[in-house]
C-alpha cells in the first residue's frame, strides 16, 4: 500500500502543475504568433491576484464572481501589454521588417521594462509586504478522502484549470479566432493573404494568455493566502521552463511538462527541503537543453 502522504503530495503537485500549465499556455501562444518571449507574463499573474484582492476587500463578492473578475482583468492586462510593449515594434509590415530579428527582439526589452514598471507600481501602491487575504476566501478547507487529506483548493484549481484547458482546445480547433491564431503561428504572411487580420489575432492571443495567467494568479493567491508584488516571478520562470521542455510552440507539450514539473516539485519536497524544490525546475531546464534541444514534444520546426 502506498503511503497516503505520497498520494496527498501527488494531488498537490497536480494542482500546482495545472497553475503552471495555465501560465505556460500564455507563454506558448505568444511565442507561437510572435516568436518572442513575453517577459511581462509573470506580472499578469500578479495583477490578476492583486486586482481580485481589491475586489474582495471592497465588495466581498461570491467566489465565482472573483474568478470571472480575474479573467476580465487578465484580458485587459493582456490587451494593454500588447499595445504598450509589442505593437510599437510592429509598425512596418513589409517582409524585411517582419523577418528582422532586431525588430522582434526589441520586444524582449520592452516587455521586461513593462514588467519592472508594473511590479514597482504595485509595490508603490500596496507596499512590498504580503497582503492579508480575508479568511473566508481561502480555499484550504480540508477534505478527507479515506486516509488522504486534500483541501478544497486542490479540487477548485484542478477543476477550473481543466475547464479552461478544454475551452482553449475548443477555441483553437473549432473557432475562427483559434484557427486564425494557429494560422498566424504557422505562417503570418500566408494568413494575411487569406483575409486574416493578423494584428487582431495577436491581440486575441494576448487576451487569452492574459486571462489564463490572471486566473492562475488569483487561484494560487487564495490557495496559499499569499499575495505580494513579486509573486509572479517564480511561476513565470516555471512556466517558461515548461514551455521550453514542451518544445517552445507545442501547447499539449507545455501542459504535460507543466504538470510533470508540478508533480516532481511536490514529490521532491519529501526528500529535500522546500527551499531547494525550485532547483527541480532549473535541473529539468538544463537537462532538456542539453539532451533534447527541440524539447520533449517539439516537432522539428519547419521553415517554408
Amino acid at each position: 500500500m502506498i503511503d497516503p502522504y505520497y498520494l496527498q503530495q501527488l494531488v498537490i503537485g497536480l494542482s500546482l502543475g495545472m497553475t503552471y500549465a495555465l501560465m505556460a499556455i500564455g507563454f506558448t501562444l505568444i511565442f507561437g504568433v510572435l516568436n518572442v518571449v513575453n517577459f511581462a507574463h509573470g506580472e499578469v499573474y500578479t495583477i490578476g491576484a492583486f486586482a481580485s484582492l481589491v475586489l474582495i476587500t471592497a465588495v466581498a463578492p461570491p467566489f465565482v464572481a472573483v474568478v470571472v473578475f480575474a479573467l476580465a482583468i487578465g484580458a485587459l492586462a493582456g490587451f494593454s501589454l500588447e499595445r504598450i510593449a509589442f505593437k510599437p515594434f510592429r509598425r512596418f509590415t513589409d517582409e524585411a521588417s517582419l523577418k528582422s530579428r532586431a525588430m522582434r527582439e526589441a520586444t524582449l526589452l520592452s516587455s521586461l521594462a513593462v514588467s519592472i514598471i508594473a511590479r514597482e507600481a504595485i509595490e508603490l501602491l500596496f507596499g512590498s509586504q504580503q497582503q492579508a487575504v480575508p479568511f473566508e476566501y481561502l480555499i484550504n478547507q480540508p477534505i478527507h478522502l479515506g486516509p488522504v487529506i486534500i483541501v478544497t483548493g486542490d479540487l477548485i484549481i484542478f477543476g477550473i484549470s481543466a475547464l479552461m484547458l478544454i475551452g482553449l482546445q475548443f477555441l483553437l480547433t473549432r473557432t475562427h479566432v483559434g484557427l486564425s491564431i494557429r494560422a498566424v503561428s504557422n505562417n503570418p504572411l500566408g494568413a494575411r493573404y487569406v483575409g486574416i487580420n493578423v494584428d487582431r489575432t495577436i491581440i486575441m492571443t494576448f487576451v487569452i494568455g492574459g486571462m489564463m495567467g490572471a486566473a492562475a494568479g488569483i487561484l494560487v493567491g487564495l490557495y496559499y493566502g499569499v499575495i505580494f508584488p513579486a509573486m509572479g516571478f517564480i511561476p513565470g520562470v516555471k512556466a517558461f521552463v515548461a514551455m521550453v521542455m514542451g518544445g517552445l510552440s507545442s501547447i499539449p507539450g507545455a501542459v504535460i511538462c507543466a504538470i510533470i514539473l508540478g508533480l516532481s516539485e511536490s514529490v521532491a519536497v519529501t526528500f529535500i527541503s522546500s527551499g531547494w524544490a525550485d532547483m527541480v525546475a532549473y535541473g529539468f531546464l538544463i537537462v532538456t537543453l542539453i539532451f533534447f534541444p527541440q524539447g520533449l514534444f517539439g516537432a522539428r520546426r519547419e521553415r517554408v
Binding site: T173, H176, L179, S180, R182, A183, S185, N186, N187, L189, G190, A191, Y193, V194, G195, I196, A299, E302, V304
Partner: peptide, 21 residues
Amino acid sequence: NLRVFPNMTVFDNVSVGAFGT
C-alpha cells in the same frame, strides 16, 4: 515559395481560407 500552414491539417488549412472571408 509556398506559404501553407505546415502544422495544421489539410482541412484546417483550407478552413482558414473559408473563415478568413
